[in-house]
Nucleic acid binder design. Sequence first.
DNA 1: GTGGGAATTATACAACTGTTTGAATCTGCG
DNA 2: CGCAGATTCAAACAGTTGTATAATTCCCAC
Lengths: 235, 235
Amino acid sequence: MNTISKNGPTPVTMDTRERILEAAERIFAECGFEATSLRQITREAGVNLAAVNYHFGSKEGLLKELLRMRIVPMNETRQALLERYQFQSQSDDRPASLEQIFDAFLRPYFEAGAPGGDRNGLFMHMLGRVFSEKPGFMESFYEEHFKDIQEIFIAAIREAQPELAEEEVLWRFHFALSLMLSSMTQRQRLKISSHGHCDPDDIEGLILRLIEFICAGFRSPILPKTNFEIVGIKS
Amino acid sequence: MNTISKNGPTPVTMDTRERILEAAERIFAECGFEATSLRQITREAGVNLAAVNYHFGSKEGLLKELLRMRIVPMNETRQALLERYQFQSQSDDRPASLEQIFDAFLRPYFEAGAPGGDRNGLFMHMLGRVFSEKPGFMESFYEEHFKDIQEIFIAAIREAQPELAEEEVLWRFHFALSLMLSSMTQRQRLKISSHGHCDPDDIEGLILRLIEFICAGFRSPILPKTNFEIVGIKS
DNA sequence: GTGGGAATTATACAACTGTTTGAATCTGCG
DNA sequence: CGCAGATTCAAACAGTTGTATAATTCCCAC
């Protein structure tokens, strides 16, 4: 049992388990899952190598625990926020707006790793990386942690956009989700490509812009076969 | 020199170099860069292990060559397509539409790996993975292969949307690019989450829906501080 | 204090990694 | 043919990987 003193008011004892989780989240986010070694994690956590397998069974067990730890409360916040918006709108006898729905969906995600503010962006960066890195891994996690919450939000979208065909709802939700996941892992690209015009660390600005972008996409008219003039694309 | 017979009309001799590239593209796309071993590649390619280092210098050299090989012609196609759209619109004395711009930008990307049709989605899947997997890697490639083409397309967007502030153009282009990259790597997720309602293999449908979604996002009104009613988010 | 389960430790394991080497083989030109 | 350069090959390199195992230390109820 290691005792470290944080600069907070109360000194906190941080046991091996927590120190591993802390270091793992940081390094997974930075280097990805495959490229991160257990020795790297245990070294930075200041614990013994075997501690990972003792506490989490395996490297993958560590990852799963890390995800579970963050995703469960995040989804609870999402649902609570959505229900509040729905309750607010209910007095006017209308469904929650698309903006409210996606605020409830996006905001807890971007703030999941940052309750105190200092771990900002760490978790979702990791999540985005893991999803793009471990193909078979996502399926099991979808079933366990995303299926229900997705159903809830898609139902809310249907209410807000009743004229939109089911297939289009699913396509566009897929776009929204992809955009949400990648806009974190790709944040540093914005810094490079905008030549300093945009501030990727402005999380609130990112959230609002994402909501705006996604809602506009959802309100786009139903797709005709070709809704703009392209003549002779092929060769 | 290995000679294999393809089921096409003309038997094709495929030398070691090409066989490595073919296998590497396939396995990188499936497993990612870090998780793929050279032995896996050379085994499936039917060549000797040392051949990779002989022909490409290193594993990373193989990846770079693979990317260069696909990206250069892809960007040429993008530019040619954009110029054609601009020429078409020019007769009406107006700039190319957002739809045309993003068709020129997206279509060559989604069709890059599939000139004959059978390698569909392989390359961009790999590209998306590599970008999310190798952080420092992207910067150098941005400078070499994306900076110029991005400038060209952003200039076209400015003409199509002159009233949009520069910062917002960059944010939204970032969103569009992120969405393009991730909508390939995340394709199988759509298959799962839509429960068969959507067909992720319908590339043409994907392109058109993406264009529609992105253009709507770009036409969204300029971001006010909060353009929808959220009261008491905190706590 | 003492026993006993929990936790930590150092060490070792087998497997796998990218890369290198030097010899063997092939290819094409004189 | 004969030789030179390009290519392929089996083998080994040193290093790292995740995991397993015993021995040790710690801590708390009794």
